[in-house]
Amino acid sequence: MTDPLTAALSGAEARAEERVTALLRGCAPLGVAFSGGVDSSVLLALALRALGRDKVVAVLGVSPSLASDERAGAHRVAAHLGARLVEVETAEGELPAYRANGPDRCFHCKNELFTRISESVAAAHGLAAVAYGENADDVLRPDRPGSRAATLHAVLRPLADAGIDKAQVRRIARALALPCADKPAAPCLASRIPHFEEVTPAKLAQVEQAEHALRALGFGDGRVRHHGEVARVELPVEDLARAAGPLREPLLAAVRGAGFRMVALDLAGIQSGAFTLPLVEVRPGETPRAEVRAAQAPSAQAAGAEARAAEVPSVQAARTNVPTTEAPRAGEVTTRD
């Protein structure tokens, strides 16, 4: 069995590790915001290799938006690495701006997580710094506002700063024999609820139950989008025939069992950023700057988006790691995660 803390990396992956190690120099003890996904798992592994097991703590945020399967998976990965893992309960569901579910929802969620880490975990474990698993591809996406919360809390992003993209993250994960090396992306459950429709524990529980049922039927990747009484099921294109054929009846029964009255199979397959990307626009020459198309939402909802946008600092500050109180223009949400 490969020991992920002693396995040798070679070529480009070895050079990438050297860059991460240099970035983490002087950052011990380090807290790693950890989900069990491949990005945060690779960051945790590289941090353990650079600093040692006694100088790194994995921190898992727990709330109704985290599926129980994901929580258990995170514990398995941490145990595989021999890493200390602490859980911190987050209360983003109590925040009106989070429940309102604008395109900046992830900002409020990450801000809550990093606030809880700062207020409890950092002192308890004497942390000198906190890092999270943003990679170089994430930097280029216009639909990831959680990154800006990281900036406000001075959270490090070693993978992105080392130029490590998603493909290289997976190559490193495979070289270190991490159990999550080929794990599909698993955004939080709230991402299944259309923007401007309230995020509630009941909806999150419905989505979790339905997606657990998909996995039980043998679908390794999938999303259940919550459209009120309708569940829109997204699966890899290669799984659509199986879902509409021999597994149609059990899939229908399983998703209905989660409380949905109707079940639709999306022929487009899995769509990352399905709800957020239609609401943002990247302007030529700007990387990335985005605005909410408020005209697509009812006027009251658009006004709410404007108010929430004023709470989010400018993208230039996010790129320079200098917090600012400058607010975006009305109707605009700049995003980077």
Rank of each mutant, 00 (worst) to 15 (best):
R157V: 13
E119S: 14
L156W: 09
A129F: 01
D161T: 11
L140M: 12
G133W: 01
V233A: 11
R174F: 03
A186T: 05
F219E: 04
I193G: 00
L113M: 13
P201L: 12
Q206S: 10
L178G: 06
P184K: 10
K110D: 07
G146F: 04
G222S: 09
H153V: 03
A124K: 14
L178Y: 01
V139C: 07
S120M: 09
A131D: 02
H108N: 01
E112N: 15
G126E: 07
A136F: 13
Q209K: 15
P201W: 04
R141L: 14
A150S: 14
S120G: 14
E208N: 04
V233S: 09
L152D: 02
Q206F: 01
Q168P: 08
Q168D: 10
E198M: 10
A181L: 00
C109G: 08
L159K: 11
L214T: 08
N135Q: 06
T115A: 15
D221Q: 15
A149Q: 08
A231I: 05
P142T: 11
P201I: 09
G228N: 06
R148C: 05
A160N: 01
A136D: 03
I117R: 02
A150D: 06
E134M: 15
D143M: 11
P194Y: 00
A162K: 02
L217F: 08
A162L: 04
R144A: 11
R215E: 05
N135E: 07
L176A: 01
N111R: 14
G222A: 05
E119P: 00
V199H: 02
A202V: 09
P184H: 05
K166C: 13
